[in-house]
């Protein structure tokens, strides 16, 4: 390959072509890197991400009663289920569920049902925590925004929500205290 003044090789590719591609490619990488910084900038910040945990004292909760606690700015439902509610949840045939999941896989102790209280449809908070609330057709929770019904295991039974109410990570510290997160 006889090099000419402008560096043209036998195949017509010049040194200038190479420089243009190299500079253009470097510019594109730089622009993409800068864009990524701006996009990632909008993700949750470190202090937001710092996983806070929430400890809940179960002592004062009577059977049939629910309380709402806050974990990572989200409401968490803690319900002490009655025998009837547990039986109802366990006896539901799995093939009648839009998002099949056995009740046993959703609780650590059958009496205590712990759920993230956010409707899986569009993020409203379902009713059913207070005694006077409408609990829906399946005795669990009812989301007033778009009419999703959840059962006594927090599973979606009817309405537009695609999934069951989520179960947050938690563990029992002792018989009457749990740590969520």
């Amino acid at each position: 390959m006889a090099a000419t003044a402008d560096g043209a090789g036998g195949d017509g590719v010049t040194r200038r072509d190479f420089l243009e591609y190299a500079a253009g490619g470097m510019g594109a990488v730089g622009a993409a890197a800068a864009t990524w910084a701006l996009i990632d900038n909008m993700n949750p910040a470190a202090d937001t991400l710092a996983l806070s945990t929430t400890e809940v004292d179960l002592e004062p909760i009577e059977p049939g009663q629910s309380i709402t606690v806050v974990w990572q700015k989200k409401p968490v439902f803690v319900r002490r289920r009655t025998e009837a509610e547990i039986a109802q949840a366990e006896e539901t045939p799995l093939d009648s569920l839009p998002d099949p999941m056995a009740d046993a896989d959703r609780v650590q102790k059958a009496e205590w049902l712990i759920l993230v209280g956010i409707c899986t449809h569009l993020g409203c908070i379902p009713l059913g925590q207070k005694g006077t609330d409408e609990k829906g057709e399946y005795g669990g929770w009812f989301c007033p925004c778009h009419g999703s019904h959840y059962d006594t295991s927090g599973r979606i039974r009817k309405g537009p929500a695609p999934e069951n109410l989520a179960v947050p990570p938690y563990r029992f510290l002792d018989d009457t205290r749990i740590l969520i997160g």
Partner: peptide, 27 residues
């Protein structure tokens, strides 16, 4: 704001990440 931003969680696979990105947090 909650309902409308949650619309994006309907996107398969990346929906949840997009919503968290829109919020800049967990809610």
């Amino acid at each position: 704001a909650t309902v409308i931003t949650n619309l994006f969680s309907a996107i398969p696979l990346v929906g949840e990440h997009i919503v968290s990105w829109l919020w800049g947090g967990f809610a």
